[in-house]
């Protein structure tokens, strides 16, 4: 068996869309399930994921997202229509429908699992300051720190990923 050097998974979550929020939470919880330690550093729009009651309200943007499947198979909708009012809600509704059909766990469930598994959830202090967000607006169990807090964790036998 090959030597497994990485004992930690260190993830930066920098985006607050529904589709960008899943990979950090799936990978961090799975890492703990595989006897690794995991931390997620929530910075810039990634902070939206850990605002109280917000995880299940995140949206998908159809703008500049040509990979998004068409609502009607075979009928091509120009991507520029994504800028029309209501299109973000339409895209989000479609994605939520697909997720539910595939019985994918909700983001709030994955967050609960992450807390239960002791995933280190770090909210970026600088982002809190820039966005005018108070720590009380974040879910319980989150710690606040800066780049050094994340890097101290990531510097020891860790794999690091960015989303």
């Amino acid at each position: 068996m090959s030597e497994n050097r990485a004992k930690r998974l260190a993830i930066i979550a920098g985006h607050g869309t529904l589709d960008a929020a899943y990979p950090p939470l799936i990978l961090a919880t799975s890492a703990v399930a595989m006897d690794m330690e995991a931390a997620i550093f929530f910075t810039f729009y990634g902070l939206e994921i850990i605002k109280k009651g917000n995880a299940d309200k995140l949206q998908v943007s159809p703008i500049a997202n040509p990979a998004m499947p068409q609502p009607v198979p075979g009928v091509s909708v120009p991507n520029i229509l994504g800028m029309l009012p209501g299109m973000t809600a339409v895209a989000t509704g479609m994605m939520n429908g697909w997720m539910k059909k595939a019985n994918v766990a909700k983001l709030s469930e994955l967050l609960e699992m992450a807390l239960e598994f002791d995933v280190k959830l770090i909210a970026c202090q600088m982002t809190l300051d820039v966005m005018g967000v108070k720590k009380e607006e974040l879910i319980d169990g989150v710690e606040v720190g800066g780049a050094a807090t994340f890097l101290e964790f990531a510097s020891q036998e860790a794999l690091a990923l960015t989303f």
């Binding site: 919880t29 799975s30 994918v104 766990a105 699992m113």
Partner: peptide
Amino acid sequence: SGLSCPMPILKTK
């Protein structure tokens, strides 16, 4: 049954 990744692994753990 019915659960998607990563739930089966998390529950197994």
